[in-house]
């Protein structure tokens, strides 16, 4: 299969990025090193090409009816242009995707979906759309995430709306006469913005941000940053075999809502001994990876050794009650390693 390229591919190549196939896209895994890029985001600012993510534009008078049916969250904040984290569930309460959604203006909503679930979610939205609702990817655009304590300061001279946004707010912007979007969101645990802009304008903005001192960052640091922040990744902490009740994001469920998968959730809540997603730390730099067994409790979903850590960290999905500080044993490639249940987000 041919790899798809984002509008920023030639910018990445100019910087000698190491490119890999990620969800069918040719994307940087790092430019300099994971360590430098991770620390740039934590201490000043870094940016990621996230054009592989799906941005779905929804229009029509009944978009809110669609979204309150297919997502498990209240639309109250989303209606006020606050990007709202939610999950789309199947009839059995399993997570089909985790998404961000928000109303841009009176006739337009935006939903950001995972690259690996693009086709599935678009099909699902269309299948449940009332008449008059349209759902389409805005796919000639680039998506750029600028993250870190100085992200807003660096973006503001180029996109003035950056400094006017409240946390999670989305606004439409005009960039050289073309429409785009800016939202105060991200996937690193830091403040920052995500921009959706016409592909042709992306390299200019990307290079202007580098001149301001924003460090280009690859997927490797994106993963270590999101794990350190305890953020879930579809295919790891989330899947169709996992319900929102098994995650650290039970709060997304609006129990007053009427959404697909709700009856299954009600049943789980009342009957099943629920699973939990926990953080663990192990007494080695060997990283527990997806599938590593946490003895008597469950299985690791993601692991990492972010810069500054002497002990690897991981998230795991476990059954039964577990407390912070509790000792555990993880099987890492044939070795039994002792560890502890720790608070999430992780701290070095």
């Amino acid at each position: 299969m041919n790899l798809q390229s984002t509008p920023l591919l030639s910018s990445h190549q100019k910087l000698n990025a190491k490119l890999v196939d990620f969800s069918g896209y040719n994307l940087p895994v790092w430019y300099s090193s994971l360590r430098e890029e991770h620390l740039a985001v934590r201490t000043h600012s870094g940016m990621f090409d996230v054009s592989h993510m799906g941005a779905i534009r929804l229009t029509g008078g009944l978009v809110e009816d669609l979204l309150s049916t297919v997502t498990c969250s209240s639309l109250k904040k989303a209606c006020r242009s606050i990007m709202t984290y939610s999950m789309i569930l199947n009839e059995s309460g399993g997570v089909m995707d985790d998404i961000m959604m928000g109303k841009v203006d009176s006739n337009e909503w935006l939903m950001i979906v995972n690259a690996s679930n693009k086709a599935k979610i678009l099909q699902w939205l269309r299948r449940h759309s009332p008449s008059g609702v349209t759902a389409d990817f805005i796919d000639t655009y680039a998506m750029l995430a600028v993250q870190g304590p100085q992200a807003i300061t660096h973006v503001e001279p180029l996109v003035p709306e950056a400094s006017t946004l409240s946390r999670f707010e989305i606004k439409a912007i005009e960039l050289n006469g073309t429409r785009g979007y800016i939202m105060r969101t991200g996937y690193t645990g830091e403040d920052g913005v995500e921009l959706i802009i016409p592909g042709a304008q992306a390299p200019v903005l990307f290079e202007a941000l580098i001149k301001k001192g924003v460090v280009p960052c690859g997927l490797a640091s994106r993963d270590s940053l999101r794990i350190e922040a305890g953020l879930p990744l579809y295919g790891h902490e989330l899947s169709e075999d996992i319900s929102p009740l098994d995650t650290r994001y039970r709060w997304v469920i609006d129990w007053n809502g009427h959404f697909i998968g709700k009856s299954a959730l009600v049943e789980f809540k009342n009957s099943r001994s629920n699973r939990h997603t926990i953080g663990i730390r192990v007494a080695t730099k060997q990283i527990p990876r997806q599938g590593s067994i946490v003895e008597d409790l469950g299985v690791v979903t993601s692991g990492s050794l972010p810069p500054g850590y002497d002990e690897a960290i991981a998230m795991a999905i476990v059954t039964g009650p577990v407390e912070v500080g509790q000792p555990i044993t993880v099987q890492i490639r044939g070795n039994r390693i002792s560890g502890t249940v720790v608070e999430v987000p992780f701290k070095s």
């Binding site: 895994v29 994971l34 730099k285 690897a312």
Partner: peptide, 11 residues
């Protein structure tokens, strides 16, 4: 080394 990136453990 370039393929692996930042090395964290050598067995």
């Amino acid at each position: 080394i370039d393929e692996l990136g930042d090395i964290v453990f050598v067995d």
